[in-house]
């Protein structure tokens, strides 16, 4: 199992090949490899997105991903697993995440890969600050955070953070 946080752009297919080459021990044992690659889009909720800043919590992020992989290993028969996730500045068409699972049979590969990806998405501390193209969005604000899926945090807005009256 390998979990990598990548601060620079990465080539998911090269990562896969390198990992497979380094784990020659599984050669001949795996019958299935499932691969999920998440790539950055240039749109979100109708806005043109020119880039984003991916923030994480060093230590906890890797731990959460490792726990997701560990749980998958308990539920399915997994030979090897590779997860690479970008942080820092990410631009459209760049890979954000790679999850790959090597197993004896395809069912385990499909199910475990999906499980790891969905668990990572809901538990691992990553946050996306999108850079919105202000020419393409009404009242466009640059540098807004997205604290909830489908809800965009806007700089300078209270965003639901409520002040105490006694303050």
């Amino acid at each position: 199992m390998l979990i990598k946080i990548a601060e620079q752009p990465f080539d998911p297919l090269r990562e896969l090949q390198d990992y497979q080459d380094r784990n020659a021990g599984m050669s001949g044992k795996y019958g299935a490899t499932s691969i999920f690659i998440g790539t950055m889009r240039d749109f979100n909720d109708g806005d043109v997105v020119s880039g984003m800043l991916l923030e994480y919590y060093p230590g906890m992020t890797e731990k959460c991903i490792a726990e997701a992989v560990g749980e998958a290993q308990e539920r399915w028969s997994i030979l090897e697993c590779l997860v690479v996730h970008r942080v820092g500045e990410v631009y459209p068409n760049q890979p954000i995440v790679l999850v790959s699972v090597w197993t004896g049979h395809r069912g385990d590969a499909f199910d475990a890969c999906r499980f790891i990806m969905e668990t990572l998405k809901s538990t691992a501390p990553f946050w996306k600050k999108e850079i919105i193209d202000s020419n393409n969005v009404e009242g466009g604000e640059k540098g807004s955070f997205e604290p909830m899926r489908g809800e965009r945090w806007v700089t300078g807005n209270s965003n639901g953070y409520a002040r105490n009256n006694n303050g």
């Binding site: 954000i96 995440v97 998405k121 604290p147």
Partner: peptide, 10 residues
């Protein structure tokens, strides 16, 4: 102790 908004990886 860490405080943070809902997470959005992937």
């Amino acid at each position: 102790i860490a405080f943070f908004p809902p997470v959005t990886g992937g």
